[in-house]
Amino acid sequence: MSSCEATVIPTSAPLVCVVDPDAAVRRSVTVLLRALGAAVEGYATAHDFLAHLPQAVPVCVVTESELPDMSGVALLQELKARGLGIPTILLSHDADVTHAVAAMRAGALDYIEKPYIDRALVTQVAPILDVDVGRPH
C-alpha cells in the first residue's frame, strides 16, 4: 500500500514570497508560481515581509524594485545582512540600466521589466523549485 498519493498537495511545498504594493501583481505572480508547485505568500511592503520572515524562510523572493518603504536593493541587502542569501528577483515598471546594474551588482538573481514578467520569472524560479519546464527559448 502506498502512503503517498500523487493528488495530494505536499504541505512542504517550497515557499516563495512576493513583495509588491500592487495587489494585481501579487495575485498574478501567485497564480503563476503556484502552477509551478510553490507555496506563495504576498506582502505589500518590505516591513510586512520582514516581520513574517522568522516564521518561514522562502526559497526565493520576488520583489518590486521600489517598495513604499524601501528599495528592492535595500531589501536584498537587508536579507544578506541577516545571513539569508535568498535568491531575489527584482521587478521594475520603469526599469533603467543604472538601476538594473546596481541590482545585479548587489546580487540580484534577475531584474525583470514589468509588465511582461511571466516568462522570465518562470525561467528563474523553475530551477529553484526543481521544476523542469523544458528549455526556454
Binding site: S92, D96, T98, A100, V101, M104, R105, D110, E113
Partner: peptide, 23 residues
C-alpha cells in the same frame, strides 16, 4: 560600455559575470 540603454542586455551581461555595465 554601451551607447544605448537596454535593461535586458545589461542584466544578461551581469548574469554572465560582467563586473560592470556603464552607459
Amino acid at each position: 560600455i554601451t551607447g544605448h540603454g537596454d535593461v535586458p542586455m545589461a542584466v544578461e551581461a551581469m548574469q554572465h559575470g560582467a563586473v560592470d555595465f556603464i552607459q
